[in-house]
């Protein structure tokens, strides 16, 4: 609908410009030109927003199953006392959650920048992929959390605690787990918690598992980076918030890493190869490469099922 409206505006302003040119003076002509340009900019912005889901028009998670016995995708609001952030989150509950009293392993799935978790839900069809992998027995029933990593859509936190800015890392590693433990039947132990993400969210997943190995056992990176690419404010983007630096200079923790990238995604491929080369025992490393596809949803759609399967095999099972 928005797309149609913006395209109609482009057509309308072009028509106004063409028909009004001979009937107006210079200042009005300038206004027509500016209006026409603005309509084009608006149309482009709407399409970019469609691609990134940075400002989604609908923030409620639409559950893709009408099966009363199937999985659910819930929309919740997480109020974080530790971080001071209050942000929405989407929660995938597997079909098995509906019955019994088992406690489930948990995966935090992080989104890219610019963007929101809705990319997982819409462009990457994550609920469908999770249902399919669990039904096929390739993945254990797992609770998957889709938190926001930034309170301001155009502020890139890379899941760090920005100096004089949002405490995204605290939100994701303290508040979100506390919320999940308080509201859902999830396993509280480290062996049952993992991370994943695409693009900036992939950097987040690797950085957070390396920074919090007592909380997370494994992480899967879909087209990630070795560095945050932002100024954290304390220089830590070059040291402790830099996965490459951590792997090179600090003792490596006993965690599992799955690094996936597209061969023609130059930056992500180079960074992922660099990270892979730095990994050594006790890090357990698995790599996955798709031939081409760039830095796009098509690549992440292809990677997500293998990444979730791998994560499940490296996390503790549901506990009755």
């Amino acid at each position: 609908m928005t797309t149609a409206l913006t395209l109609a505006a482009v057509l309308a302003t072009a028509t106004l410009l063409a028909l009004g040119w001979n009937r107006t003076r210079a200042i009005s002509r300038s206004a027509l030109v500016v209006t026409s340009l603005l309509s084009v900019v608006a149309a482009v912005a709407v399409q970019v927003n469609r691609l990134t889901e940075a400002y989604p028009t609908e923030t409620q998670a639409a559950s893709t199953t009408s099966d009363p016995d199937g999985s659910r995708m819930l929309t919740v609001m997480v109020t974080g006392p530790a971080s001071g952030l209050t942000l929405p989150m989407y929660v995938y509950l597997p079909a098995a959650y509906r019955s019994g009293s088992a406690r489930f392993p948990v995966i935090e799935a992080l989104h890219g920048y610019p963007g929101t978790p809705l990319t997982w839900l819409r462009k990457l069809n994550v609920q469908s992929y999770l249902d399919h992998e669990i039904t096929a027995g390739r993945m254990a029933p797992t609770v998957v959390l889709f938190p926001y990593q930034t309170p301001e859509r155009l502020l890139d936190t890379e899941c760090t605690n920005l100096r004089a800015g949002p405490r995204a890392e605290t939100f994701l590693t303290v508040d979100v787990p506390a919320f999940a433990r308080a509201h859902y039947r999830v396993r509280p132990d480290r062996a049952a918690w993992g991370l994943t993400g695409y693009s900036a969210g992939a950097f987040c997943a690797i950085n957070l598992v390396l920074r919090h190995p007592r909380q997370y056992a494994a992480a899967a990176s879909l087209s990630g980076y070795a560095e945050p690419g932002i100024d954290v404010g304390d220089g830590s983007q070059n040291t402790t918030n830099n996965s490459g630096w951590r792997l090179r200079h600090l003792p490596q923790p006993a965690v599992g890493l799955w690094l996936g990238w597209a061969g023609d995604d130059k930056q992500s491929a180079a960074d992922s190869r660099r990270l892979a080369a730095e990994c050594h025992r006790p890090v357990s490393l698995t790599t996955a490469v798709v031939a081409h596809g760039g830095h796009s949803s098509a690549v992440w759609r292809q990677m997500e099922a293998p990444a979730f399967d791998w994560l499940s095999a490296h996390l503790a099972r549901p506990l009755s």
């Binding site: 027995g137 390739r138 996936g260 791998w310 095999a313």
Partner: peptide, 10 residues
Amino acid sequence: PPALTAPLRL
């Protein structure tokens, strides 16, 4: 870890 069938791989 859980008992699983063979995973999808890349």
